[in-house]
Each structure stands twice: as structure tokens, then as C-alpha cells.
Nucleic acid binder design. Structure first.
Lengths: 206, 206
DNA sequence: GTCTATAGAGTGATAGAC
DNA sequence: GTCTATCACTCTATAGAC
């Protein structure tokens, strides 16, 4: 991938994040890069082509974060993984804020994103079961409860920035998102786990 | 408000729900009603005018539901209020699915919606405190916990249909939303409250 | 109030020179 | 690879007849 193509992808993400995907025209991206629209459409024949490349870049970035590997790292807690996700979502917030709009306009991305979501939920469930194993949270009180909890955590992550934007809140409160997720888990903490939780809460509220 | 204006509002909501606000053109609404676009723009000079009227209708409908009054009704549980909200959201799902898009395109609606959101959250907190009073859930373990819980419940309500659409799930699972909210509250249930919860869960899973 | 016809503004995509 | 110029299309909004 040459320099121009890279620049286009980067600038697209930047503008998408600022203005939303539909409000960014091919011409805006070209102008921001001080190139012509003819040049841009030489590299990406259609806006759909561009979107697909942006999406691929997004997935590649996630893979490089290799959540899975962090998961296996001893000594790094679940909080660290969750924080990584929130940072990722912030970096590609255009996608999380406009997901529906995007998959309506580019339906080919929908299927790919469905898989993405299921993976994310699986990782969260994994983290929960590991926390049970480590004695940080209690066993599942009845079947489906931790499925439901994982779903709630996933929703909180996915819609965190969206709800901020809807409520007209500033976009700099990553810690509040973490705290909310911590609070979802808190009631399931064992006595040992409560200690971990309170320490975490102390860190988050300062 | 005459018949034509009413028809336009109703059909707009119908089409918005099906296709998303930006994908519905003035012409589509006129065609669906078998009237001319000239006629439609005679009644609503701009699309913005139309949106504002649709929004007013939406708020009016919510007021008529008078959540507040149901709240005061003895014998009708919180579950009933939550179900009412989910039904309302389903009826105006275009707004909940495209909230950001809408308030970006029609910024005057943003402020009104901010107030709306704060009211919703206040109602939820109220329900939680009433549940404490009735001995159904425990007292707040530390300050801010039930604020956080109320926020989680609000997010679940607001984004329920959005996450269904994103995940490519069918739109007929109102009970799953209720169950998820019930599960958010479950760990705070008192021994008395657990009974209520299990009964509710039984109803929801059949 | 309702219609037809069309102006006018915006935007994605293309053609052809350099 | 990059540019300028422009086509072709979509959609909102308006004008004027009935």
C-alpha cells in the first residue's frame, strides 16, 4: 500500500470521527489532504471501496492489539483488556457511533461485523470465567446469568461513546466507562474480589 | 391538525422505522400516501418542519402513556413500567436507532432530547429507590452504585433495538430485553425480592 | 388543498490532458 | 499518479395552474 492510499485511509478515519460517515464527502477528504478528487477516486474507485478499506484497516488494528494474547498474559488484569477496548473504540468511534447507518449503506460489512460482535462477546465471557477460576467472582447463580452479564458489558463498551454523544457529554471520560463496567461486575465479586474491585475503584475515581 | 397532516406524520414514522430517517425521501412519503410532493411540502414546508412535528408527536405520545402516573399506581410493578418503555421504543424505533444521526441533522432536537434522557434516568432511579423502600432490593452498598445501575438500565432500554439490528437479530424479542434488565437488578435483590425475581423470570422465559 | 413541472443545490464518478 | 473540468444523478423546495 503506497503513501497516498495510507494518507487517504488515515484522513478518512479522522474526518469520519469528527463529522460522521455520511457527512464526509469524497471532496472533503481530498481537500483535507490537498489532493484532487480525481486523484482520490483513482486510488479508491468508489466510496464503497474506500469504506471497505477503512474497515479492513480497523480489523487489522484490532488484531494487532491482539486482545487474545493479552488475555493469556499473566499479571495483566481484565481491566487492562477492557481499557484497551475502550481506547480502540475511541480511535474508530465513527464506526461505533454510526454502526447501523454504515451497515445499512454497506451491507457487505454487516456479516463481517456480526462475527466481530460474537468474538467480542466470547472474549468477555472468557474473562468472566477466568475471574471465576481465580476466585475473584462467584460461580454462576443460574444458567444464563453470566451470558446476560457479558451481553451487558458488551453493550456498555459498544455504545459508550454513542450515549456520550447523545447526552451531549464531553468525550474525555474513558474512566467513567470503565467504572460503569466495574460496577456491573461488582455485585458478583467474592470477598477476595471485593478487595480488587475497591482498589480499582480508587484508581478510577482519582 | 387535519387528516392529511395526520396521515403524513403516521406514514413518516412507518417509513422511518422501516428504512431509517435519511433513507426516506419526501417523495417516498408522498408516494406511499398517494399524494403529490407538492401537496406534502404545502403541509410541511421543509423536511426539518416534518421532523419537528414527528418529534412533538413522539413526546406527546410518551406523555399520554404518563409513565409518571403508572408509577403511582399501586399493584403495578416496575416490570410493567419497563415493558411500557420498551413498547414505546419499538413504536418509535427510528428515533432510538438513529438518534445521533437525527440530532446531528436537526440540532434543535438535541437539547430537547437531553432533557428527555435525564427524565428517563430520573424515573429509573425513582423506581430503584421505591424498590428499596419495598424491601425488594438492598440498600446502596456505596454512593453512586445505583446511579451507575440506573445508567446501565437506561442504556439497555435506549440501545436495545439498535444492538438487535447491529447483531442481525429479529426484532421480536421484547422479553429478552426485559430479562436482561431484570438480570441487571437481580444481584441486588433481597431474599424477599429474589422470589419476585424468579417469578418474573419464569414468566419471561415461557 | 392538491396537482404537475421544474428549478436549484449537492455529490459521486468519469474523461482526458499532463 | 495527479490534475481540471464536467457529466449524471438524487433530492429538496418552489412556481403556478386547477
Amino acid at each position: 500500500m503506497n503513501k497516498t492510499r495510507q494518507n487517504i485511509i488515515q484522513k478518512s478515519i479522522e474526518l469520519f470521527n469528527e463529522q460522521g460517515v455520511v457527512n464526509v464527502r469524497i471532496r472533503d477528504i481530498a481537500d483535507a489532504l490537498a489532493i484532487s478528487t480525481g486523484n482520490l477516486t483513482y486510488h479508491y474507485k468508489t466510496k464503497q471501496d474506500l469504506m471497505h478499506s477503512v474497515y479492513r484497516y480497523m480489523i487489522k488494528t484490532l488484531e494487532e492489539m491482539s486482545i487474545g494474547n493479552q488475555l493469556m498474559m499473566p499479571g495483566r488484569g481484565a481491566l487492562h483488556v477492557v481499557r484497551g477496548y475502550l481506547e480502540y473504540i475511541t480511535k474508530f468511534r465513527f464506526f461505533y457511533q454510526d454502526t447501523l447507518e454504515i451497515i445499512r449503506a454497506y451491507p457487505e460489512l454487516a456479516k463481517s461485523h456480526h462475527q466481530q460482535v460474537e468474538q467480542e462477546k466470547a472474549i468477555i465471557k472468557n474473562l468472566l470465567y477466568r475471574a471465576i477460576g481465580k476466585g475473584e467472582i462467584k460461580g454462576e447463580a443460574f444458567p444464563g446469568l453470566y451470558d446476560s452479564l457479558a451481553h451487558s458489558i458488551w453493550m456498555t463498551l459498544h455504545f459508550w461513546l454513542t450515549q456520550q454523544a447523545i447526552r451531549g457529554e464531553a468525550e474525555d471520560k474513558l474512566e467513567k466507562g470503565l467504572l460503569m463496567i466495574a460496577n456491573l461486575i461488582y455485585p458478583y465479586a467474592t470477598e477476595q474480589g471485593v478487595g480488587v474491585f475497591l482498589k480499582m475503584q480508587g484508581e478510577l475515581t482519582h
